[in-house]
């Protein structure tokens, strides 16, 4: 099952890509662990998670075709 991950702002410093397709993850916690193992610099990054353009407050199960966004804070002005 393919899930699309979008990395915003400076998170791409950690991932080097803005977009990633991930297979075989069933929920957002599992996805976070996978991403932290794959991109260790994400461990110290600050961001919130949205599934299908809705911010989540706890782990959510993921379905094929879901789009998960990792959104960091920006501070420039």
């Amino acid at each position: 099952m393919a899930i699309e991950i979008l990395f915003f702002g400076s998170l791409t410093d950690a991932t080097t890509v803005g977009r990633l397709i991930v297979e075989d993850v069933t929920d957002t916690d599992q996805l976070k662990t996978y991403l932290m193992e794959r991109y260790p610099a994400l461990c110290s990054a600050r961001y919130f998670v949205a599934v299908n353009q809705r911010m989540i407050q706890q782990t959510e199960s993921l379905q094929p075709g879901d789009i998960v966004a990792l959104m960091p804070p920006f501070s420039g002005g």
Binding site: A50, Q53, R54, I56, A69
Partner: peptide, 21 residues
């Protein structure tokens, strides 16, 4: 809503926000 605009990709992305417990 949080509105995110990427000027380089010419794309916007919107996220519906919720209260953090």
């Amino acid at each position: 809503r949080l509105y995110n605009y990427d000027v380089w990709q010419a794309r916007s992305y919107e996220i519906v926000l919720s209260l953090h417990p």
